[in-house]
Design a protein around this nucleic acid. Structure first.
Lengths: 338, 338
DNA sequence: TATATTTGCGTAATCGATTGCATAATGTGA
DNA sequence: TCACATTATGCAATCGATTACGCAAATATA
């Protein structure tokens, strides 16, 4: 086991002090050219590498940033993290990943353990109802940025998409395509993103003189089975809807598969629009219209907001609440064009 | 800005020494019940949290593990990382993510910066041709585990799938379904995984008395366009193939889309099998047969191998080379059943 | 009562790098 | 040649926690 060489090793070899070595390596205070070159050369020879841990302890900056998401193997979060890493790595930051699996206690644990690890900031898509854990982050004066899902707190920034607009535009699109009985597959509306998608849907109906029918709104989870079950219930209504705006792509997929089984033609007889622009929506033979959430943009901006916060020297906290526009992507499931 | 409370703060408040506080908190040496309880109580009151950085510096263990992948937003790598995190988080380890985008110099950078950050281990899917950077990791006696893509080095463990078997079984399946002119869309065969899939394909043909035809093998990249272009070339051959084993799902998808354009019926007239079991292969209306690489299993085992290495007290390095079996998933693109 | 043992806690070193202050070496000007 | 400015370097504290060592008090034993 080779022990790592430290500045003390270099100092000893050269018969000087660690302080001098440090200064030489940092090219900092006044050092004679001679010793500087000598130290640099020796450092290379001895295969010296700075111990960032010691530096972090001394300076109070770890250059680690915690990123907390429900699951990293969901394309949406993977893309966000990709963008965060791409943005922060060049600035010398490392990304520490924590998964919560949507579990509140795991999320709290993650926050604690990240604080212990002395991260310089936390970027999080929170599944949490409480705000107490976040107060602890703020108490330590550690930058906190919410993305995807937001919590309204003083001094905390957030980057989210305009879910209302997304729901509105998707529904408006269906209306313009001539569909008049538009149903909505919603998620749990105690979660803000689903509530807003729902509100956007509702508003679009109202703005266009269509009746809002409570029966046409089904609260369901984001998977295929739920989507196909929801479709079955909807078809039992009289009159049955002839279009769906789904708050999730997977539920939309389930609905489409069920329509196919029932030999209902999409989009001629029935149209479907999803939400999230998951990769599969594009690849399907019957490609699925959907609302893009620009995860790369979201991650990039979340990272930038964090960087601004650490760069800020003033005592007052920066509070930015950024809302990204959504993009409606029209595909075969809701239009006769591609 | 509240400063964090340290054991010194607690010590001062109680009129004792930091050493005593440390012992009380660690429930370690002999401490009177009285002081122990007092310290614990005060620690809670003062909102004390251990600074892992100081601990890491002292102990030489950071409890951080670096994971290096080409891109985290690819489902395969996302799943692997998910499993690694799930496995290591309960043991107190944090996962630091680095993306290389398949770039060799970025990969080397990542390794350097992880070493600087004093990680306790590195798990990597390497795009690197050289082994010098890995020698530096070994020189520091830091556990190194390759996954997905392997490098043969002394004292280094690896977890990969049996690409040969995967290619063999996929091809065998096509043969058994009665297809006789089976082509292969290969990746860059200087990369071992693609070479082995190719060799498996070839061997299956030979073992079953089918002629191996060099013209039926096309080296292509892993995207849809390449897949559809490859199909076009293949159809120009005489005799044209009537089945494809593709080393990538995306190329398989491209081929299938091209077949559809040409009104060639899948699987009746032409069968396709992909590789990787990307989520979309399952969701397609015409679902795509593929070879599953069990990323969750791979990540879990890679993590376990790492844990074994850190747990090992002996000086000799553990070297495990684990090869996971693949699973052929038969779907509509290659069989008249689902 | 005197000695031996245990118990509880303080002292100080350590991990590796940085940095304000002090000091030695060198140079400058009169 | 002496006083002073400049420059290069050393000394020692610091970040926060752990731990070997040792001392004193409390307790046990003879």
């Amino acid at each position: 086991m080779k022990k790592k060489t430290t500045i003390y090793d270099i100092a000893e070899k050269l018969g000087i002090t660690a302080a001098t070595v440090s200064r030489a390596l940092n090219n900092n205070s006044k050092i004679s050219e001679t010793t500087k070159k000598l130290v640099l050369k020796t450092a290379v020879e001895m295969n010296y590498e700075q111990n960032k841990l010691a530096l972090a302890l001394k300076s109070g900056k770890s250059y680690n940033v915690g990123v907390v998401v429900p699951r990293i193997d969901m394309n949406f979060f993977g893309s966000i993290i990709r963008a965060i890493e791409d943005e922060l790595a060049p600035k010398g930051y490392h990304i520490i990943i924590c998964q919560t699996h949507g579990d509140e206690s795991k999320e709290n644990e993650s926050i604690d353990t990240l604080l212990n690890a002395q991260v310089d900031g936390i970027l999080i898509s929170s599944s949490n109802k409480e705000i107490e854990p976040f107060n602890r982050v703020l108490a330590k004066n550690i930058p906190l940025v919410f993305f995807d899902r937001k919590k309204t707190m003083k001094g905390v920034s957030s980057v989210v998409i305009d879910d209302f607009e997304g729901g509105y535009n998707a529904t408006l699109h269906l209306i313009k395509q001539g569909y008049t009985r538009i149903a909505h597959l919603s998620g749990n509306r105690s979660i803000e993103i689903y509530k807003n998608r729902y509100l956007g849907y509702k508003q679009a109906l109202i703005d266009n003189g269509l009746e809002f029918n409570e029966d046409y709104v089904i609260q369901t989870s984001s998977d295929r089975i739920s989507g196909s079950n929801s479709l079955k219930s909807l078809l039992k209504l009289n009159p049955a809807p002839n279009a769906i705006f789904s708050a999730s792509d997977l539920a939309a997929l389930g609905a489409i598969q069920e329509l196919k089984l029932k030999h209902i033609k999409v989009p001629n007889e029935f149209a479907v629009v999803g939400f999230s622009n998951e990769p599969f929506t594009k690849f399907m033979e019957l490609s699925i219209s959907t609302v893009d959430q620009s995860p790369l943009e979201m991650g990039k901006i979340a990272a930038q907001v964090f960087l601004e916060q650490v760069a800020s020297t003033t005592d007052e906290k920066i509070e930015k609440n950024i809302v990204l526009p959504t993009e409606l992507i029209i595909r075969k499931s809701s239009a006769l064009v591609d």
